[in-house]
């Protein structure tokens, strides 16, 4: 069950697609893997795609929020893509806003946004 989430490198950007429901261990493992990969590759940006995810609770949201902040500290920009309407609504109702992160409708838009941000 403890499958790791694959992290792909595309030029100076890392792409992560979370394909199945995150359990606590996988989420924490992912946090660690991503930071290591950032360090190894000196990536400037990360896109995390959540399209298949149909719910996020406060724990997973916290892990995600932490990842975003840590990535920021390491000097990279993060775009979260594909948050489903139902997930967005539950997050808001839980009181979770993910304030300091860019969002985009899908991976394609997310990469566009990230490249624009990196050029600026």
């Amino acid at each position: 069950m403890n499958a790791r989430i694959p992290i792909l490198k595309l030029n100076e950007v890392l792409i992560v697609s979370i394909q199945w429901e995150l359990d606590d261990q996988t989420a924490i493992q992912f946090q660690e893997d991503l930071l290591n990969k950032m360090h190894e590759t000196a990536a400037l940006g990360v896109v995390i795609d959540l399209t298949p995810i149909d719910f996020i609770d406060s724990f997973i949201a916290k892990v995600l929020g932490d990842v975003i902040n840590m990535t920021g500290l390491m000097g990279a920009k993060v775009v979260i893509t594909g948050i489903q309407p139902a997930v967005a609504i539950t997050l808001i109702e839980l009181g979770i806003r993910l304030n300091n992160v860019m969002t985009a409708l899908d991976l394609e838009n997310g990469l566009d946004k990230l490249y624009k941000e990196l050029e600026a």
Binding site: D57, Q84, I89
Partner: peptide, 17 residues
């Protein structure tokens, strides 16, 4: 519906945790 499914699933996750 999907939104309420997400609400219920999330609530259960919070309670179980």
């Amino acid at each position: 519906g999907t939104v309420d499914q997400a609400r219920i699933t999330t609530a259960i996750s919070e309670l179980a945790r």
